[in-house]
Write a protein that binds this DNA or RNA. Structure first.
Length: 575
RNA sequence: CGGGGUGUAGCGCAGCCUGGUAGCGUAACUCGUUUGGGACGAGGAGGUCGGAGGUUCAAAUCCUCUCACCCCGACCA
């Protein structure tokens, strides 16, 4: 592409709404325009990146015999009513009626559509497994779109679906997809982690699910991992253990004065003990099947509650912190809440890290009083419920107790799930097995956020000057700038450009005649991996062109004859 | 949806408190001079001040309503 013919404009200033590097740089470098909240236009260079990402995905999925299809973006409401998600997802889905009053929606995902296709075609176990995918636009009316492409309402997603006769087959399909995903992100040149994840509403709790996380400072997810083993999990899911805590056991419970000390830090400082010698008492209200119940959640004083774990443990539809007035009604004093002698309307849950036979400082349920020497196994009337509810922390150990964990941030770009028979059952998709018996096949579903991956690649790879694209997904491989204005040098540059193109090198030729500074700034901002400069003055002296690598700044001087092979070598090194 | 904020030229901002000629930087345009890290000079162009209503002789500025967008939370590729 010749820049003199391109529709491209960079900017010196960043639109104020852009807060994170990927959004700022995509706007500044003229790759993206905003159309509305969470809705963007992909300009030519962005589209090239998107297409490269898509093609890598296609190649890897085709290898595992997944077949590409395209499902309609607008789907009939009927399908969603069949699966029961029409009402469930009404906040996320844009729903509307056609002129005849029939319900329609913009697809936020396509389990229903694909199951509908499947049940119309597949009737026999001999046709299984089936693997289908599509890459197209999704619309989710997110509660709060933000961070540019990171959480748009309209976005491009690859969604794949597999159908299997039994669990064994589903596991095999899952494993293939896991491998394909690993290959996809490897080929894109991204630093990523594969982590155990929480299934959310998507699957049953025992089904496998993993997330693919691009490692980046601006990531919204926390990844718990160990360097000495292959353990990695999203913090929502991670179960790790604390080590080297020494507890004591007091012989009796005594009340102590703690005037105006409402926080654990205050009380423990006052008593000169470590915070884990106390119990943190949190009151939560869960709603399950429209029934409300209240829970007192106990954690070691320096631990934090993981709400996802609590929600899963309680099998709750919603979970909120209990309102102040309800806390009062339950006979609790905020700031001095504790598990001793409290209301029978409260369900008490202990975190796994608590040693039930040791003594702790707890709130006394009296103003300005705490209790010392509370031992759960001794001082609780009823049997004690205990489960893992805390957030993992750096310095914890994996379950086996051998590997210390750390935490880093990631951006979720891919997620693979085992769905089981949820949709095939709801939508009566059945095949005959080898006994002639009707069975509901098991499903897996697998997503990659294409546009989010583009943003994540920038989050991971940029500097003060601009973006730094990995070779495999760069809009072009080479930025070729010409400094000079004589007719001879222009002719030479044009010939070089033509020869690069005919050698199948993706080159962006800056023939706009700008000053060198402006060209270099644009080049660094756009972040193509390789920059070639033909400078009239230098070339007359030395007959050499300059090759500079965006990522490391390395410079090579090459002759016109050696240029193409050197560039090809550099490209192949990075692919 | 709750809390906070912002809307003035393509982009970034000032002006608003204390009402009275619509301003700066940058980009874009023309002419000339420039070519290895966002060149310089000169000239011109660009605005329903988010929208509606109100107060006033007079509103970007004060009042009311409204819309859009951004940030913090629940959601997710």
């Amino acid at each position: 592409m010749r820049l003199s013919k391109a529709c491209w404009q960079t900017y010196k200033e960043i639109p104020k709404e852009a807060e994170i590097p990927s959004h700022q740089l995509l706007m500044k470098a003229g790759l993206l325009h905003k159309s509305g909240s969470g809705i963007y236009q992909y300009l030519p260079f962005a589209l090239r990146v998107i297409q490269k990402i898509e093609n890598i995905i296609r190649e890897e999925l085709n290898k595992i015999y997944s077949q590409e299809i395209t499902m309609s973006m607008v789907t009939p409401g009927e399908l969603w009513k069949e699966s029961g998600r029409w009402d469930l997802m009404e906040n996320l889905m844009v729903q509307f009626e056609d002129r005849g009053g029939k319900d329609l929606c913009l697809s936020p995902t396509n389990e229903e559509s694909v199951t509908d296709i499947f049940r119309k075609i597949v009737k026999s176990y001999k046709q299984l497994p089936v693997s289908l995918y599509q890459i197209n636009t999704k619309f989710r009316d997110e509660i709060r779109p933000r961070f540019g492409l990171m959480r748009g309402r309209e976005f491009i997603m690859k969604d794949a679906y597999t159908f299997h006769l039994n669990k064994e087959c589903m596991d095999k399909g899952y494993e293939e997809m896991y491998q394909a995903y690993s290959n996809i992100f490897k080929r894109m040149g991204l630093d990523f982690a594969i982590v155990e994840a929480d299934a959310g509403n998507m699957g049953s709790t025992d089904s496998k699910t993993h997330e693919f996380q691009v490692i980046a400072e601006t990531g919204e997810d926390l990844i718990v991992y160990s360097e000495s083993s292959d353990y990695a999990a999203n913090i929502e899911k991670a179960e790790t253990i604390r080590k080297n805590l020494s507890f004591s056991k007091d012989s009796e419970v005594t009340e102590i004065d703690t005037p105006k000390m409402k926080s654990i830090a205050d009380v423990c400082n006052h008593l000169k003990v470590d915070q884990y010698q106390s119990l943190k008492s949190l009151v939560y209200t869960s709603i399950t099947d429209a029934k409300e119940s209240h829970h007192l959640v106990l954690l070691l004083g320096d631990d934090e509650l993981n709400e996802v774990k609590l929600k899963n443990y309680l099998n709750a539809t919603y979970l909120v912190m209990t309102k102040d007035e309800t806390i009062k009604d339950l006979g609790l004093i905020k700031g001095f809440i504790g598990p001793h002698n409290c209301s029978e309307n409260l369900n008490i849950v202990y975190d796994q890290a608590i040693d039930l036979d040791s003594s702790y400082i707890i709130g006394a349920n009296k103003v300005d009083k705490h209790l010392k020497g509370f031992v759960p196994s001794r001082n609780c009337k009823d049997s004690v419920n205990q489960t893992d509810l805390r957030n993992s922390k750096p310095g914890d150990y994996t379950q086996c107790g051998e590997h210390e964990v750390k935490i880093k941030k990631g951006i979720e770009v891919g997620h693979i799930f085992q769905l089981g028979d949820k949709y095939t059952k709801a939508m009566s998709a059945q095949v005959l097995d080898n006994n002639g018996k009707k069975v509901n096949p098991l499903m897996g579903c697998y997503g990659i956020g294409v546009t989010r991956t583009m943003a994540a690649a920038i989050e991971q790879n940029h500097d003060e000057q601009g973006m730094i694209w990995p070779m495999a997904i760069a809009p072009y491989q080479v930025y070729f700038s010409l400094i000079g204005k004589s007719e001879e040098i222009k002719k030479l540059a044009s010939d070089i450009y033509d020869s690069l193109v005919s050698d199948k090198i993706e080159v962006l030729f800056d023939d706009r005649g700008l000053g060198p500074g402006a060209m270099f700034k644009d080049s660094d901002l756009l972040g193509l991996p390789i920059r070639i400069t033909l400078g009239e003055r230098d070339y007359k002296e030395s007959n050499l062109l300059e090759i500079k690598l965006r990522k490391c700044g390395t410079v090579h001087k090459v002759s016109r004859e050696g240029l193409n092979s050197k560039v090809k070598e550099l490209i192949n090194n990075e692919l």
